[in-house]
Design a protein around this nucleic acid. Structure first.
Lengths: 208, 208
DNA sequence: ACCTGAACACCGTTCAAGT
DNA sequence: ACCTGAACACCGTTCAAGT
């Protein structure tokens, strides 16, 4: 029982490279994520990495995809969400307002990405939208359609929510000492969702 | 007609360095903005720059501040806004809805920053919020208070609008080929402003 | 006193030489 | 056939040597 996992050598596939890169980014930040460092983490030379990845940009893209595949979806049964307090997230979507599920989903995404400060930057810089984000994108579009949006508006709303999240996270990692940021995103998120959802079912309220 | 301006040499103050950096960023992008390139643009050695700036991060900060000082404020008299079509921006704020002025202001800011793709990145990465942004920040807070928000909510709303703008611009520069992005920001902006403004004066509407 | 060419310590990437 | 040490072309930054 000396070891079984931590002594990965030989095969050196993309999985191992991405895992090592994620380890470096989580522990020491994106600035320390150099190919030399990743190669050293795997006990190999830096040139060996180029047999499995095209360049550093592709590695960052794989990292973004790796992160995106495990986005939380607290509304769904088999998804973890926040392990500590599932009550708050589960409550969203049961109440009357159609936007609650959307708010809960994006608060979970915020908490998830806030735990990986490099994530927002990698996704923002990624030349391609992570394909692994398809499942969470589909889930979000379904939530938005359930709130009364048509297909076009659901896509626009998804992008708007994503941009708000991205801007908040990037500003946060750049200025970590700013006061009251955790609640700030929640405040903004609820206003944006309110503006989106009310715009679709409000016309009857306003016109009559 | 040989030249009269383009031949700056000798003094080499911060102003000239920032202007040269801005020229490089505008023409060739942020990736080409190296200290060697800026020094070459000014006809001097790269080491000479360090007598006027501490390091590259400070230069980017000065660049962000330079950009922030000339943010458009279309509602105010002596501010340029969009030189081509002042009618659209001036119209905002005259109509009944209190959010129109806010929407017009942020659409002008979007147009301004979209013309300088490096701007959003430089501001996002800047270790300090550009001090030159104080005037536009004050203007925005005034507009938000005029829309009925108290001081705390005005600050939160300003941050939320800024994050939405930042996320939109960064996503746009990363994926330039995305369809329908110009209208997308306007769509999201109007929903966010609606959610912010209605949340303050809506209670009377909902309760009664 | 002030400026700056050359050097230093990195980085991503490539390639000829190893097995 | 597959891997990799050493080299290449950059980068930001520093410093001793110039004027």
């Amino acid at each position: 029982m000396t070891q079984d996992v931590t002594y990965h050598r030989r095969p050196l596939n993309r999985q191992l490279i991405v895992a090592a890169a994620r380890r470096v980014a989580d522990s020491d930040g994106l600035a320390e994520l150099t190919l030399r460092r990743v190669a050293g983490e795997l006990g190999t030379g830096q040139a060996s990495l180029y047999r499995h990845i095209a360049d550093r940009a592709e590695l960052l893209g794989l990292l973004a995809e790796d992160l995106a595949t495990s986005f939380p979806m607290p509304g769904r049964p088999d998804e973890p969400g926040e392990p500590g307090e599932p009550g708050e997230s589960a409550e969203a979507g049961r109440n009357g307002w159609a936007g609650d599920a959307v708010v809960g989903q994006w608060e979970a995404m915020y908490a998830y990405l806030a735990a990986h400060p490099w994530g927002a930057r990698v996704i923002a810089e990624g030349s391609r939208v992570a394909d692994g984000a398809h499942s969470v994108a589909g889930h979000n579009l379904a939530l938005l359609r359930a709130a009364g949006l048509d297909d076009d508006d659901a896509v626009r709303a998804y992008r708007a929510l994503w941009h708000l999240l991205l801007g908040h996270l990037l500003d946060q990692t750049a200025h970590p000492a700013t006061p009251g940021s955790p609640g700030d995103f929640s405040w903004a998120l609820r206003r944006l969702v309110a503006g989106i959802v009310r715009a679709t079912d409000a016309p009857a309220e306003v016109d009559s």
